[in-house]
Structure formats: C-alpha cells, structure tokens
Design a protein around this nucleic acid. Structure first.
Lengths: 218, 218, 218, 218
DNA sequence: CATGAATGAGTATTCATTCAT
DNA sequence: TATGAATGAATACTCATTCAT
C-alpha cells in the first residue's frame, strides 16, 4: 500500500500477460463446448463454471456470446493456417509443398474436430454473416497457391489449365473431405486420405488410352 | 340412398388424396422457410400463416417441428436422388453416366439451394442424430456406383485403383463443391463446374512427363 | 325411403332407448377417466376412442367437456343417495337406519372411489361453482335425517342437543372419512369403519365418571 | 482496505438474509394466488408482477411452478402444526390439550382458508404424489396424540378402546370439518365448532339408557 | 477488476370446440 | 345423425446480458 504512487517498475509487477492467457483459455474451452453442445445449447454460465471464473468475467473479455463464438472460430482458422504453413514450409519442391499442405490440413482437423463443428455451427447460427470465417481465411491465403500453381504450369509440370479450376477443385475436395470425415466419423488415417486425394488430383482416374480418346472428343 | 358408390360409412368422408397433397405442400414450404431463417428461428406459426392453414393443422400432419424438419430434409434427398437417377439414365456409356450424374447433382442444388442449407441446419440442430440424412441416403446409393467403377476398371478404361478411393474422393469433392457453392454464393454455372470437376478427376493435373516421374517414385 | 311420411309405428321401430343408454355409457366411462387422469388431463378424444364413437358424437350428447364432467359427478351423487336410501330402508329402528345409512355411504365410495376423486376434481377445476355438487345433494337430503334425529331426541333416546350439531358433526365425519380413505389408500373394511364411527358418535370416548365431571364444568 | 469486516472476497457480496426473506414472501403470496385462482390458472408471470419482481427471479428461488406450489403447501402445513403445538401447549390436562389442539386447528384454517384450498389443488394437479402433503405431516405428528390417548385410557378417563379408532375418527372429523367449512362457506365461529365436535366426541349422542341397551347388544 | 443476482423476451405444443359432409 | 379434420388460444421456462457491490 505504501509507495503506490511512484512505484513504477518496482513492487508487484502487474502481470501484463495474464489477460492474454486468460483470453486464450476462454477461447480454447469455448471452442470445445460450442462444438460439443452446439451454439444455442451452450450456456455461458456453464462455460464460466468450467473455467472456474464468474460469468461476468467472460463478458469482460468478450462483449457477447456471439463475439466469443466468432473469436473462437477465428482462432481455429488461424491455427489451421499456421499448421498448413509449417507443413508446407518443410518441402522445397512445389508439388511436395502441396502434398505437405494437404497432409497438414487433414491432420489439423483430425486432431481438432471441434473446429469442423464450429464451421457448421457458425453457418447455422449466423445466417447473416456475409462471408463465413472459413472462406474469409481461405480467400486471404489462396493467392500464394495460385502463384505456386502458375509456376508449375509455366515449368511444364502441371497441365495448362485455369489455375482457378485447379484451386477450386482442390479446395472443395479438401473442404468436403474434412466435413464428411467429421459427420460420418470416418476412421481412415489422414496420411492415407492425403495420398488418395493426391493420387486422383495428380493423375486422374482414367488410363492413358481413355484419356487420349476423350481428349479428342473434348 | 342405396349404392352410394364409394359409400362412406357415416360421418364426414375423406378425400384420400387431399392429405397427400397437403403433406407435400407443407414439406415444400417448410423446406424453404427452414432454409431461409434457420431451424430455430423458424416459427411454426409463421409457416402455417404462409400456407394459409392453422398451426394445429401442421401438427396434424407432423407430430413436431423436428419431425417436420427431418421429413422436409428427407424429401429433399429423395428428390436429389431421383434427379441423379434420371440424369444418369440418359447415357449408355458408364463414364458418360458418371458425367451426367454429376451434372444432375450440381444442377439439383443449383436450383434448390434450400436443401444445401437444410443439411447444415440439420447437423447444427440435431447433434444427436447418428447418421445425417445426407449420408444415410448416400450410403444407400453408393453400391451402384461402386459396381459401375469396378466395371470400368475391368474394362481397362479406368486405372486399377481401389474403387473406394475413387468414390470417396468423388463424393467428398461433390459434397464440398455443393456446400462451398452455397456458402460463398459462387456464380459459376453448374455445367462449367461439372466439367472442371470431371477434367481434374478424369485426367489429373499433371503433365505426362511429371506423372511418369512421380510414378517411378511412388 | 318410401312412406317415410305416414310410416308412424310401422316399419323399423326407432330405438327410443338407445340415446338414453348411450348417455349412461358415456357418463360411466367419463367418470372413470376423469377420476383416473384428472379433469384437465382427460382428453375428450381419448374418451371417445374408449367408447368406440366419434368425438363429435360425445358433443351431441353433452354441450361441453365441463357439462359432461358435471353430469358425471351429478350422476354419481344420485347413485350414492340411492344406495343410502336402499341401505337405510332395510331397518325399522331409527338408530339402525342411521347405522345402515352410514354403512351404505362408506360402502358406496369403497366400490366407487372414482366419485370421491370427481368431487375433488370438480372443486379444483370449477372454482366458480357456488355450491359443489356434493353439498348441493347433501342439502337436499339432510331434512329427512333432521326429522329422524328430532324424533329420537323426543323419544328420549338421543341426548337433548341441537340436531344441527349432530348432523353437521356426522356429515363432516363421513365426508372426512371418505376423502381420507381415498387419499391415503386406507384398507380397513367399510364395515369396521362404520362401527368405529358409530361407536364414537353414539357413546363418546369418555368413561362415565369423566363425563360426569366434565358435565358439571361444561 | 484491510479488515473490510465481513470481507467478501471479490465480486458482489450477498446479503445472507435477503434470500430467506424473499423466499418467504414468494411462498406467502404464491399460497394466496394458487388458492384464489387454482393451480393451473395461476400464471407465474402474474405472481411475479404481484411481488414486483421478475419472473426469472421466481425461477431463481424455485425450479418450477410445481416445486413452488408444493413448497407453499408444505409451508402451510408447517404453520398449521406450529399453531396446534402452541395451542395445546397452554394446557396441562391432556383432555384440555386435545381441546386446545382442536381449537387451534380450526382456528388456523379459519384465518388461512387458502391452505384448505391448496390441499385440494395439490390432489387435483399432482395425482402422482404418493402421499399428499397434508397426510405426510399428519403421519409425522400423530404419535404424540396416540401416546396421550394411551395415557388417558390407562388413567381410566377414556374408555378402553383402540387408540387408532379414536384418532382416526377424530382426524377424519377434523379434516372433513375443515374442508366442508371451506367448500360451503360455513360461518359458525371456530370456537363453537370446536365445542360441538368435542361434545359429540367426548360424550356421544346417546342418552345413558340407550347406551346401556346398545352396549348389551354390541 | 470480478462477481452473480436480477431480468424478461421468446416459442413449441395441446386439445376443446366447430361444422362440412 | 355421426364423424373427424381443422382451428388457435393459452403458458411454463431458459438464458444472454446488465450492473450494483
């Protein structure tokens, strides 16, 4: 109590990190609860109980349940892209970068299925949002992969075709795989799944002769 | 008085067709409203007003809001599969059947985006359902396509690879495309999309030389 | 259809009794259902199903659920008083008439507990009724017993005391016994109960010496 | 800052007395409203308006309308028994204790007719309850009076007869009197009623000669 | 800063009654 | 006369948010 005035750096150091950590704790727990019970059925009171803090405290960190949910979802998407970046960073060859990115994507949702759930809950609860969090992040990241594909086409390694086609097919395939995994409880390892995807994406399913025949037609 | 014909016994006779027609009307309108407002925000009263019938009448046909929703979703999936059957029935060549089925699938959701929405709403509102309606129908229909693919492989037109791989990739790609279309408001025509999908699925994105190189590696 | 006009006594004899019988059937079944489920929880539809008739038919016999309930209750009270009359009619001696009346009363509710229940339901559901059915009937019948008691006092067999006192105590005792039996599921035979009541009512519980002592005081 | 006294830790401190008082207030008002309108017709919203609090606040204190009703009824029975205890405690002589207990019982319902109504409402609304509140309390209190009667018989002041007989007759008489008072709007003062009951209970209605005659028979 | 008591808007469902046939 | 399809009024309870302490 003494010297409260001048005590600047001395005395009990305000833990400037505490708020940040608590915020993260809340978001992490919220993601799990929202995913487990759904948005509407998740009670802020119960979340607070879970965290061992007061309900009012949750509201000190987030202005509303909605904001809390969206922050949790957004955090999930940031984590996803960090993992994907890390994954693809390991490879030098562009095609290998693609491969590792896909593995990282599937791996992330494999270990964090709650974020798949949040994407669905978001859509169902907030019909008004113009751009769902997932696609907002997607848009922000897609440019890098467009350039990468462009390079591969220029290098004559990937067929000359619109990069948008490649990327939209790949994106939709990943998105569909992730959701279907979540909804059906599929058990295949993410490594196998990644190889399946890549096999079809890279080589197609037709044999050479059939490709040639159709090529003439198309 | 004798021989009244379809002589109803006592009391108000029933028009055996009316219930069927009214049921369909309710389901169709319900699908649109549930898709527009979301499950929770859809008031049965408003739906009834929309239809120009009493709320109690809705409950005569469906025991609960939940049952009504699920029936509407199920009807949507039945319509989807009818369209897909019709679409693929037009072609003789198996690969063309695949092509037409995919076009029909995308076309259906293009003209009935409400059913894409219902699939999401279902998941969000009924976390307890073991198998989502979409995948229940999917399971029931997949066998036909497995046999078709098997045939194509046997005929040497499709590469020798697990049919499960082909079908799961194709299914997830369609599912992801459909949802992404719905969520992002994509404008591409379903015909173009079908061709994009098929192009990648059938031929892969790599050039022959790259395929060969990777083939050696893999 | 021919001769409908003049066909008076000839032709198919209209069963003038049918409506009366059906009315009784409805009342009897209604009493049981109202007693079993309570007034509010008794569904007219279920009652009709029970009887194998249409719901509208019930409404042809009784203008409302309320009227049906009250008619069923009223019928019960009429049956009660018939039994009591029959019971007491067997004895010549007035005190024995009292005894048999009490036995008949308890016997009736023993075999028809549903009417005890209806009395409660009536009160709970129809707060507005000025005089409950039970007490309306009671009022109409009490005169006879007043005269009987008057005679017994005049004959010097019953103590000189206000007959109202005797009758209100006796009435309340019977009423309380009947309800308590119903609510607590008491198992004593109605014969024993009648004897217990009469023993106390007739002789009091005090020994002669104590009566004398208190008599001086009172 | 030090020694804040009852130093509440963090957050809004609670007035430990307030909840208790508010609970009582709610129960008292609820008893009156439930009695006035009946259980079903009593709207929790109106009760809250009456009390000048929010509906949600009522639900903070009682988990359901049913629980609120039962708590109000239970409180009434506790009040009843307190009055009876107080009443009988004033007398030394056991017979006088009986007399004062009966006066207190009738007096209580005379000033609190709402509790007579609650007993009826309880039965009508909660058919499922195994033991109605009234009889549950009754059971818990009856032992004392059994011992008292036993003593009076042993002392030769009350006739040798089963104490159960005495107590069940007395109980049913009180119960019937209380309910009949309530249902018929009887106006007699509770003092007079008590004397009437006791006169009959203690002395019986027969004259000595008749008692003797019947005694020989019975 | 943290807390949790207080609030009140919002909604699915039942069932008595009507009346066309 | 008998029926049952259609109707719509009526009501408990939850939970996000606020704000006094």
């Amino acid at each position: 109590m003494v010297r409260t005035g001048k005590a600047s750096r001395r005395g009990r150091p305000r833990d400037a990190e505490l708020p940040r950590r608590r915020r993260e704790e809340i978001l992490e727990r919220a993601a799990l609860r929202f995913a487990e019970h759904g948005y509407a059925a998740t009670d802020v009171q119960h979340l607070a109980d879970d965290l061992g803090i007061g309900k009012g405290t949750v509201y000190r960190y987030f202005p509303s349940k909605r904001a809390l949910f969206l922050a949790a979802t957004d955090r999930g998407m940031r984590l996803l892209h960090e993992r994907v970046e890390e994954g693809s960073a390991g490879a030098r060859d562009p095609l290998e970068q693609v491969r590792y990115a896909i593995r990282a994507y599937l791996s992330f949702f494999d270990s964090h299925p709650e974020y798949a759930e949040l994407l669905i809950q978001e859509r169902a609860a907030f019909r008004d949002r113009k751009v769902p969090t997932y696609f907002a992040h997607h848009e922000a990241r897609i440019g890098k992969w467009q350039r990468l594909m462009q390079g591969l086409i220029a290098a004559g390694r990937v067929r000359a075709m619109p990069v948008e086609r490649i990327l939209s097919v790949a994106s939709d395939l990943l998105y569909g795989t992730m959701l279907a995994n979540h909804f059906t409880g599929r058990r295949a390892s993410f490594e196998e799944q990644a190889e399946s995807l890549l096999d079809v994406m890279f080589h197609g399913i037709l044999v050479g002769r059939e490709r040639a025949r159709r090529g003439r037609r198309a």
